[in-house]
């Protein structure tokens, strides 16, 4: 399986053991996780540059197990182009934006270069979304940048927004719905698959922010066919990776 929404490191307001890349590989081995697409919690927090460097260290140590998202901070607008180009040349596979922690609008001007770059290079952009407004904004962006692959992080987060996301994203083919979420509502995977198809759903867990095992059990024990589970747990992620080679 491939976790398309994972992290690396610590978070400031709650405790968990470890969180470094060695502890992540250990648990990945235990549960048969092939690879995790990571962004550093440091980047989502105070220092995008240091966080991206942490991701690079993880990729260098375990190139087959980790793929990197370059995380951008809207407060360093003049560095965005340079940082994207540098990290993509180092082998990062996509871009991560967290408008929640950075308190910046998804369609804010500073982010627009990232979408343009992703569009030109057919890259995935993982965007944290929470609430109906975020869902609607990502849908509009995906229509404007049709070569970029938009991964709607948490698919809107709360149940109402998730139900909206599946409706609005259905006809916008460059959007993938991300399963990452602490709530893991019973039945929502089946609902998504029925509405939008298993080919448009990506498995993610927020690992190690959250333990990945409950989410795996959630998908594995959903009432989907083995083919649909395969698409969600790894097939779709592999297709995204291959599409921009």
């Amino acid at each position: 399986m491939i976790d398309a929404h994972a992290h690396l490191g610590k978070w400031y307001n709650f405790y968990y053991d470890s969180g470094d890349f060695l502890s992540m590989v250990k648990i990945m081995d235990r549960i048969g996780m092939e690879s995790a697409w990571i962004s550093a919690l440091m980047s989502i927090g105070p220092d995008y540059e240091l966080g991206n460097e942490m991701v690079f260290e993880a990729i260098k140590a375990f190139p087959d197990r980790f793929k990197g998202y370059v995380t951008l901070s809207p407060y360093f607008a003049d560095k965005i182009e340079e940082e994207i180009k540098k990290r993509i040349s180092q082998g990062f596979i996509g871009i991560k934006l967290h408008p929640g922690t950075h308190m910046y609008p998804i369609d804010g001007a500073t982010y627009l270069y990232a979408y343009k770059y992703a569009d030109e290079h057919k890259l995935p952009v993982l965007i944290h979304t929470w609430g109906e407004r975020d869902v609607r904004t990502v849908v509009e962006l995906a229509k404007s940048y049709q070569n970029a692959i938009f991964i709607m992080g948490h698919s809107g987060g709360d149940l109402r927004s998730m139900l909206l996301a599946v409706d609005l994203a259905r006809d916008v083919n460059n959007i993938y719905l991300d399963l990452t979420g602490s709530a893991m509502y019973n039945g929502i995977i089946e609902y998504y698959a029925n509405k939008i198809g298993s080919e448009r759903i990506l498995f993610g867990t927020d690992f190690p922010f959250i333990d990945p095992r409950p989410a795996i059990g959630w998908v594995e024990n959903s009432k989907l066919s083995e083919r649909e589970k395969y698409n969600i747990l790894q097939g779709n992620a592999k297709r995204i990776l291959n599409s921009n080679k």
Partner: peptide, 18 residues
């Protein structure tokens, strides 16, 4: 936490615990 959650979620967590 049925019906809100899938039991397989916590079961997998327990079964795969070290």
């Amino acid at each position: 936490n049925l019906p809100y959650k899938n039991p397989g979620s916590t079961i997998f967590y327990i079964e795969k615990a070290d």
